[in-house]
Design a protein around this nucleic acid. Sequence first.
DNA 1: CTATGGAATGACAACGCTGTCAAGCTGGAA
DNA 2: TTCCAGCTTGACAGCGTTGTCATTCCATAG
Lengths: 344, 344
Amino acid sequence: MTSKQREARQGKATIFDVAEQAGVSIKTVSRVVNNEPNVRESTRDKVLEAVGRLRYRPNVAARSLSGRRSWVLGLVYGSPDEFSYMKDVLDGALSACEERDYSLLLRPLTLPSAELVDQVERFITQARVEGVILPAPMGDLPDLQRLLRRLEIPFAAIAPKVATAGQVTILCEEQAASFALTEFLIERGHRAIGFIKGDPDHGAAAKRFAGYRQALAKHGIRYQGRLVRQGYFNFDSGKAAAAELLDLPQTPTAIVASNDDMAAGALLAARQRGLAIPHALSVVGFDDTPLASRLWPPLTTVRQPIREMAKTAAELLMDLLNGKATQPPAAPFACEIVVRESTT
Amino acid sequence: MTSKQREARQGKATIFDVAEQAGVSIKTVSRVVNNEPNVRESTRDKVLEAVGRLRYRPNVAARSLSGRRSWVLGLVYGSPDEFSYMKDVLDGALSACEERDYSLLLRPLTLPSAELVDQVERFITQARVEGVILPAPMGDLPDLQRLLRRLEIPFAAIAPKVATAGQVTILCEEQAASFALTEFLIERGHRAIGFIKGDPDHGAAAKRFAGYRQALAKHGIRYQGRLVRQGYFNFDSGKAAAAELLDLPQTPTAIVASNDDMAAGALLAARQRGLAIPHALSVVGFDDTPLASRLWPPLTTVRQPIREMAKTAAELLMDLLNGKATQPPAAPFACEIVVRESTT
DNA sequence: CTATGGAATGACAACGCTGTCAAGCTGGAA
DNA sequence: TTCCAGCTTGACAGCGTTGTCATTCCATAG
């Protein structure tokens, strides 16, 4: 049976079939397929032609087994999390992986969890994951970090609180964005500006809060703790926090929520108190999720290039795995204020 | 070097190490690990103990290569789609895969696309995907179906328009739910009930519309085409469709939108016309996305057990791949009406 | 013309597991 | 007691690549 017949019948040409067709050894085929140097141009062409004719695809299992590399990246995320965020992370990571023929495996986790470390360890050893992408707040779990270090698995953290030496860290100018957002309100005359903090486990929470304080300071507005409430990046906590602010003797005229979901909660709290938005109260969010544009009124918020951040995270992680010089930590990504109708 | 030392140093015990520790052949270890029959209980225990001590994990690459099975399922989805839906699908599929030691690979697609077939073919052949999960509307693309048939790749379609013989089909009682939802409005006195259809490419669109008509018929309400508008399962189309309905000489007192995102659009259109909801207009959605509860007023809608549906889809697909008798098409899943405040 | 060294190519042994098939055991029937 | 069937177990050959190292080729220097 010729290789051509084999291919036609099974749709599974092997490296031997290609070698036969091209009249070279399997090793040469391997070199061409893997873009290795030291192959004569004419040889390369012959091989490539055979590859095309036979529709040859290297068998990933054989490649992994022989090369002792899995070409698999893992993405560990909090399962109940804000999913529009994860969608973007997924999109970005997936596109980076596809470009370089890596596979991406997902591992949702419920936090907090005692079994977390076991679950991730099983995930990594089972699938022979080579590197892990850690979207916030996964980049800040000490147990997880320890595990990865023990397993000698490199990782890329997206928006962690603190960068880890030797690993990939992707940051966004969240503090600057929060600063700009707050300043935006100040410039429009607001002086009593409430703030709803995010989950302290997320690095983002502190940065967004810092930007708020920084803006107040710059404009000579006294910081008042009574205008600040703790939230947890979700709707209910935003609603509760806003309710407290709006029941204050002296009510703020604007509220900065640390993300859109909490801003949505704030909108609801305002509505329950008969406050017209934005006239009686301005509300701003953070993240520009789909929710922001579907709410009434549509939210003024901050857009982060999550997709690009995740893509870069995956790319730098792959570079790290392949021994390419780790760039100095990538410059933080820029955010963008999206002005809609929830602000005067 | 003993296997114990090897394990300690590398964290990578092989089947040989386990065999040595347990005093059996590698084949017996293989049998135990794969739960094959005909292994004496005492032998099994010895092996299991060695497995535990060495923290042995079979190498998936070797297993795939040798067994000519990849143990990989693919999930093909429309990338810009409603993502809360995909989150649930992902959750369900992932949990099923995890239970049976399958891997799940994702392939987002932008529809419509001329390269769709090529992209999916590359996806499948590259990763040696054994079976594919097709959430709506992926289950209804003729090109895709043809491709999968040619490649002899079984698939599981979630909520397709029509079931495909020999494949897994997972359905939900959408028509019944839509019927119940419409009837719910009728019972509350509504007679002029508008309807916003979904994307005709989704099987769900027709079923939801049918349920609406069925409810009208049951209650002797004349069907009026003027109260029905075409939408595409997204916010903007819902807003536009609702705007048309609300600008009619004789306005409906309730609107059934075929999903939540369109219902959100309808809410906006109503607000722009100064209509108080639910007093001047009732609006209902479908899907119970997170959006539904964050809108004002929170939407009355229908919850589908998407997660369970996806899990079952994956399970039945794996059964199919492993030659287990394909059950008669699984009974459709039940939906549930969630009453909130967007209806009188 | 020959020597030389790097570029180009190939032979062959892993990689870690499962499938196949043969062999060893065991207990009950004859 | 012997025999047989069925349960257990093991030896060994792949599976399709890549890594290693040897060999061949070729252009250039001497």
